[in-house]
């Protein structure tokens, strides 16, 4: 799966302003809307709901400050993704109880097949590497984040 095809600079934020799970998710869906991947406010709400529904079942906050919020809804025609960094970290209800710092969010269509979970899994595998995490935290521009993830 080609990371560069899905993730582009305009869907990456290196300084999220939100400080709760809801705010971060809304902000990142906002990135997807601003870049045209989500069309209107109605679709935006559906996307937020899909991600929050999934969070209610079980938090996607994993170890090492990584969270991978995601949801399925047919407001998108193919997999879309956003990446956000909140250096201070927020409480995302993570497995290890520690604050989450790097967020990778995907929204995928409900009724179409595709490597959706696989994409998340591969990004998480990259993020498991402390060197890649460091590079993302040090990144000065979204391009450097993409560089770090595809290297």
């Amino acid at each position: 799966m080609n990371l560069k095809k899905v993730l582009s600079p305009e869907t990456i934020s290196l300084s999220l302003s939100g400080s709760t799970k809801e705010e971060v998710i809304e902000e990142m869906v906002g990135l997807l809307m601003k870049s045209g991947r989500i069309k209107d406010l109605k679709d935006r709400d559906a996307a937020i709901k899909a991600v929050m529904d999934r969070e209610h079942k079980m938090s996607t906050g994993m170890q090492n400050g990584i969270a991978i919020p995601h949801g399925k809804t047919d407001v998108v025609a193919s997999l879309v993704a956003a990446l956000g960094v909140k250096k201070e970290g927020i409480d995302f209800g993570a497995l290890d109880g520690k604050p989450s710092i790097i967020f990778v969010m995907t929204i995928s269509p409900d009724n179409r097949t595709g490597p959706h979970i696989q994409f998340l899994a591969e990004v998480s595998r990259h993020l498991n590497d402390v060197r890649i995490r460091e590079r993302i935290l040090q990144a000065a521009s979204p391009d450097e984040v993409i560089e770090a993830l595809s290297g």
Binding site: R54, K57, M58, I117, Q118, L120, A121, E122, S124, R125, N128
Partner: peptide, 19 residues
């Protein structure tokens, strides 16, 4: 080991869908 992530996540999502 290299592909364990994919396996774990796909099965996890399916378990949650069970709910």
């Amino acid at each position: 080991e290299k592909h364990e992530h994919v396996l774990r996540l796909v099965v996890l999502e399916e378990l949650l869908a069970l709910e």
